[in-house]
């Protein structure tokens, strides 16, 4: 029995629209023509081999990975603080502060980029480097981290930690033995999502990167050259595959967290 036949057809079509571009990636990444056009001409792994031998690309990738890892650690640590404060007792100004931290969700990225650039250069008088990129990435990752971790912390009965203390644990022991295991899946999700955000970000990196470009900045440089299009396709294939893998892992942990707390699953991220 097909329920909502037309709606279902429309929704499937919409999914096709959402996925169409990224489904084209592998198609042309393995196509042996140097222009991106139909019809496909033949199978090759040449473009991937070219990735393997491009030193500048490796440099950019290393850069991006370092930035992404540090970003996800810092953002998640701050996110844990904020999410725990969110579920804790209210004090004057708490809602305002939290709202302010979440502001980057609705700020155009270019405004964040431009204003950070001004501060880094004019006020703090720092050289642009990977550090400045990390600082910026934490600003935009933090709201996502908090949103994910809020879900994890909000599921907790405040009595859990009190019960642990009542049974002889210190405040820290209660956090470590009860809260941490219960929100751990959320922490993993947050780490992964912040990692992806950093790895994918182009705008902030373009403004704030130093002498060494990040991977997206490097890719952007490539897009100006027609002959490097197939290489971008190959690189894009790998990046999207990586994102999806991380995402699947993040989703797995999120669901496990929900199951662990003995709750009903009520939807995805955000």
């Amino acid at each position: 029995m097909m329920r909502g036949g037309w709606l279902r057809a429309y929704a499937l079509l919409y999914l096709v629209f959402l996925f169409a571009p990224i489904l084209l990636l592998p198609l042309f990444a393995f196509n042996d023509a140097s222009v991106i056009a139909f019809p496909l001409t033949g199978f090759t792994t040449h473009w991937f081999q070219e990735l393997w031998t491009t030193e500048a690309l490796h440099q950019a990738l290393r850069n991006s990975l370092v930035i992404a890892v540090l970003n996800s650690l810092i953002a998640t640590l701050l996110g844990v603080c904020a999410a725990r404060a969110t579920s804790g007792p209210a004090f004057p100004g708490k809602r305002g502060i939290l709202g302010f931290i979440m502001l980057p969700l609705v700020l155009p990225e270019i405004v964040i980029a431009v204003s950070l650039l001004v501060v880094v250069r004019q006020v703090l008088d720092l050289q642009l480097s990977n550090v400045t990129v990390i600082l910026a990435h934490v600003v935009i990752s933090l709201p996502f981290s908090i949103a994910i971790l809020n879900g994890a912390f909000a599921n907790l009965d405040p009595a859990f930690e009190e019960a642990a203390q009542d049974l002889g644990e210190t405040r820290w022991g209660a956090f470590r033995l009860v809260t941490l295991p219960l929100v751990f899946p959320g922490i993993i999700s947050s780490l992964l999502i912040c990692f992806i955000i950093s790895l994918d970000d182009f705008v902030l990196a373009q403004f704030l990167t130093g002498a060494n470009p990040t991977l997206p900045v490097y890719i952007y440089g490539l897009t100006r050259f027609v002959k490097s299009l197939p290489v971008i396709m190959a690189l894009g294939t790998l990046l999207v595959a990586l994102s999806i893998t991380l995402l699947v892992i993040a989703e797995y942990f999120r669901r496990r967290g929900v199951a662990r707390a003995g709750l009903k699953d009520s939807g995805g991220f955000l």
Binding site: L15, L18, F19, P21, I22, L24, L25, I193, I196, L199, D200, F202, P216, I219, Y220, T223, I232, G236, L239, V240, S243, I244, L247, E251, G268, F269, L270
Partner: peptide, 17 residues
């Protein structure tokens, strides 16, 4: 989950596509 997947793949790559 399916709906959010494309959102998490590189924005730059998607525009380029």
């Amino acid at each position: 989950f399916l709906i959010t997947i494309p959102f998490w793949s590189s924005y730059l790559i998607r525009v380029f596509l």
